[in-house]
Structure formats: C-alpha cells, structure tokens
C-alpha cells in the first residue's frame, strides 16, 4: 500500500504502564518533525503513577496539508476503524483497543504476556495467543507477532529495549511513511539514554521483523 503525502497516517500504540508506550510515541513524533512533516497531533495518556494499568496513545501525522482546512487532521484521536498501524507491547492490549482497526490495519504485537492480577487470582481467563490472532484476523489479515521481550532479554540482558525492537518491526511494515531510519537515529541520539544500545535494538527489530514479514508472505503464497 502506498501513501499520498496528504494522507493522515494513524498509529495506535498500546501496552501496559511502564512498558515505554509514551516514549515510543514521542520518538515517532519527534522523528516526524525531523522528516519535515507539516502537521502532527496525537494524544498520550498520563497522570497516574501506578505501573499496572492499560495505556494507549494515538499518533497522527500528515506530510502535506490540503488547502481546504476541513480535509486536514484536527483531532488527536483516531476515528474507529481508521488506524493504519498498531504497535502492541502486550497481546490482549491489541484486543482492548481494537475498535480503531479495520482491514487496512497492520498489527505488530509483542507476544510476551503480562497477565493482570485477576488472571493470577484465577478469577478471569487470559485468551490464548491463537485466539488473539484469530480475533484480530477478524479486522485484518496483517497480524504479526514477535517475541520482543525475549529478544531484548537475550540480546541486552533486560526488557527495556522492547519498545525500540517494536519500533524496528513497525518500520519494517512500511506503515510509517515519510520518516527515514536516519530521523529515528537522530532522535534517539538526542533524547535517549544509551543511544548506541537503542539504535542497535531498532536495527535488530527491523531485521527480525523483516524475517517475520517475509515468512508470512511465503506462507500466504
């Protein structure tokens, strides 16, 4: 799918508090600014300190704007069904915020689960990854899992790089048009601690992500 410069690009990022959802959202927005994007407007939720709640953010940008103001981006929230890309740090969070998806959506999901306290208490059930995949397929064929947490722990000895690995995977889907790899790298250098490590994670995400996308293409053919 190719995008026109006047298209509004819609990205949902979902996860649990403390996973780096907001950091990733900001990275994309600041990279978009470096790429000369004319309008960006996105909503991020913060305010509560606790680490356990569900978190979603909406990133929206438009490379060039229409002369007719009414056709442009005006809301920081995506309309139901209008997301181009979902980046989910935790599988059920994709289901929880699924309402923004449709057949044009690509999902990239971290397959590492974080069961809430009700699951541990055995008072609610966590759906299987197969069930999650099958449910998301009701929106779109483009649903891809990567075990970003395991990759991060294996390569970096900690789970902190999950968000950059997920960004790499998202970049590989080409659903973040008009922003170049170099723009992300610049922003990482300016804004993150351990930039080398994070740039490595970004590249790792692109590499592993591309493999997953290629394999799925093969299986579809």
């Amino acid at each position: 799918m190719s995008f026109k410069e006047t298209d509004v690009i819609n990205i949902v990022i979902a996860g649990t508090a403390g996973q780096g959802v907001i950091t990733l959202k900001r990275l994309i927005e600041f990279a978009a600014q470096k790429a000369g994007i004319k309008r960006a407007f996105g909503s991020e939720m913060h305010g509560l300190a606790q680490r356990e709640g569900a978190i979603t953010s909406h990133t929206r940008y438009q490379k060039e704007i229409f002369e007719e103001e009414r056709k442009n981006l005006h809301s920081p929230l995506i309309c139901y069904g209008d997301a181009d890309l979902y980046i989910c740090f935790e599988p059920v969070e994709a289901l929880r915020r699924g309402i923004f998806a449709s057949n044009k959506t690509t999902f990239v999901l971290n397959s590492w689960t974080i069961p809430g306290v009700m699951i541990t208490a055995n008072l609610e059930e966590y759906p299987s990854l197969d069930k999650i995949m099958e449910t998301l397929n009701g929106y779109s064929d483009e649903v891809y899992f990567i075990n970003a947490t395991e990759i991060s722990i294996e390569r970096f000895g900690q789970s902190q790089q999950v968000n950059l690995i997920m960004l790499g995977f998202a970049v590989a889907t080409r659903k973040l048009p008009f922003i170049e790899l170099g723009h992300y790298e610049e922003v990482i250098k300016e804004r993150l601690r351990d930039p080398d490590l994070n740039i490595e994670a970004l590249h790792l995400g692109i590499k592993e992500g591309s493999k997953i996308l290629k394999n799925s293409l093969k299986s579809k053919v």
């Binding site: 606790q50 356990e52 139901y80 069904g81 699924g98 998806a101």
Partner: peptide, 25 residues
Amino acid sequence: QMSKAIDYFNSYKEIIPSRFPTFCA
C-alpha cells in the same frame, strides 16, 4: 469502515480480561 469496527469490537469484547489500575508491586 467505522460501523464495522464498532460492531466487530462489540462482538468479542467479553473475552478481553480486565486490566484496571492497581497498586504497584
């Protein structure tokens, strides 16, 4: 696209386990 998204979401939302904010570890 919008009405479909709303209807489809409503068709499965029961299987989503809750994740309310809770005290930190």
